[in-house]
Every structure is written in structure tokens, then in C-alpha cells.
Computed example of a mutant assay.
Amino acid sequence: MKLTVGEGGTAEGRFLPGTVSFMIARPHAAPSLSGVADLLAQDADERPAQAGPGVLADGTTQFVAQLAVPGAQHIGMSTSGGPMLRHVVAMAMSSFATLVADGEGGFLVRQGGPIGLWDTVEEAISMWRNAGAPPQTEFGLTVTPDRQRVWLGSPEGPFWELPARPLPPGRIRVG
């Protein structure tokens, strides 16, 4: 990424060619997954998934998913030799999404907590695909003293506000 520094502590620029993955701005350990089993056992809504866990394997699509839910972690687990389950968990927001094969070539998503994590991921991926699935060089970043915004196309285009500090529960915003 190449940023041009502006007045008042601002900077802006586009992502450079190559594979970009989301990285936390401040060095610190990933959030603890202590209590994830209790979180995943909570009541949840289930529906057919529009996008399966394969979207998390592609570099640009994974980047878009991480922009949509910056406080979440992707983990894979199986229990007692059962099928591999893919989870997206945001412990600080007490939210989770679990993707399970539906036996017919698709996936079901089971979501719980105050934030529909997979709904948010699917919305962001759909917006990116509707824009023609552009490469990461079409994304840019605007930084001010109190915010970080990743945008697609131009600073006025679709954008994602990233936390400049840890977000309190329920503060994910997609513009």
C-alpha cells in the first residue's frame, strides 16, 4: 500500500498489486477463543447460505469478508470424527456463524448473537461481485486521526469503517 500523507494527520492511497490480506493495525495477539464452545451452543437461526466457506480460501474474497467483519476470526473444527465445520466467531460481540454442508452440494449457515456475521459477509461479497469483482488494486484506504476507512473505487464509493480501536458490541458499520 502506498499512502499520500495529507494535512491534519490524514493519509490516503490505493492497495498495490499483489496479494493483500487484512492485518491488524496494532500489534497484539488474536482475541482469545476461550468460551467459544459455549458461544456456539447458543440459540441460532439457520438458513441456506448464499456463499459457502470456499469464499474464505480466495485471497480477494477473503479480504472483502475480513473488511465486513474485522473483529471476527475464522476457525475450522470437527467433533468426534464428524464433518469439518467452519465457524466465524466474534467473541467480543458474542456472535457466531457456522457453515455446514447441506448434503446437496450447498451449505447451511447457523448464526447466533446480536450480529448476523455471515449475513454481513455475504452482503459485502455480493456488493463486491456486483461491482465486477475488481482486484485489490481497486481498493483504497483513507486514514484520519480517528478512523480508518477502506473503500472500493473511490473514497466516496462503497466503504467499510475499520476500528481505530477495539469496537464495542454492535458497532460494525458497512457504508
Score class of each variant (00 low, 15 high):
Thr4Cys: 06
Thr4Tyr: 07
Glu7Asn: 08
Ala11Met: 06
Gly13Arg: 08
Phe15Glu: 02
Leu16Phe: 04
Leu16Arg: 14
Pro17Arg: 12
Gly18Asn: 10
Thr19Asn: 13
Ser21Gly: 07
Met23Pro: 00
Met23Tyr: 04
Arg26Lys: 11
Pro27Tyr: 14
His28Cys: 13
His28Val: 12
Ala29Ile: 05
Pro31Cys: 10
Pro31Arg: 10
Ser32Phe: 01
Ser34Arg: 13
Gly35Cys: 04
Gln42Asn: 08
Asp43His: 09
Pro48Lys: 13
Ala49Met: 03
Ala49Val: 01
Gly52Asn: 02
Val55His: 02
Val55Pro: 00
Ala57Phe: 05
Asp58Gln: 12
Gln62Tyr: 02
Val64Asp: 02
Gln66Ser: 13
Val69Ser: 00
Pro70Phe: 08
Pro70Ala: 11
Gln73Gly: 13
Thr79Tyr: 15
Gly81Gln: 10
Met84Ser: 11
Arg86Phe: 12
Val88Met: 08
Val89Asp: 02
Val89Cys: 05
Ala90Ser: 15
Ala90Trp: 12
Met91Leu: 10
Ala92Pro: 02
Ala92Glu: 06
Phe96Lys: 01
Ala97Arg: 01
Thr98Asn: 01
Val100Lys: 06
Ala101Thr: 03
Asp102Gln: 08
Glu104Trp: 06
Gly105Phe: 02
Gly106Arg: 02
Phe107Cys: 06
Leu108Phe: 11
Arg110Gln: 08
Arg110Pro: 04
Gln111Trp: 03
Gln111Ala: 15
Gln111Met: 14
Gly112Ser: 11
Ile115Gly: 03
Asp119Lys: 09
Asp119Asn: 10
Thr120Ile: 01
Thr120Asp: 05
Glu123Cys: 08
Ile125Leu: 14
Ser126Val: 10
Ser126Tyr: 09
Met127Tyr: 04
Trp128Ala: 03
Arg129Phe: 05
Asn130Phe: 09
Ala131Glu: 11
Ala131Leu: 06
Gly132Tyr: 07
Pro134Asn: 12
Pro134Ile: 15
Pro134Trp: 07
Pro135Glu: 15
Pro135Leu: 15
Glu138Asp: 15
Phe139Arg: 02
Thr142Asp: 04
Thr142Cys: 06
Thr142Gln: 09
Gln148Thr: 10
Arg149Ala: 07
Gly153Asp: 06
Pro155His: 07
Gly157Thr: 04
Gly157Phe: 03
Gly157Leu: 05
Pro158Gly: 09
Pro158Leu: 07
Phe159Ser: 10
Trp160Ser: 00
Leu162His: 03
Pro163Gln: 08
Arg165Cys: 06
Arg165Thr: 11
Pro166Tyr: 07
Leu167Ile: 01
Gly170Lys: 02
Ile172Leu: 08
Gly175Ile: 01
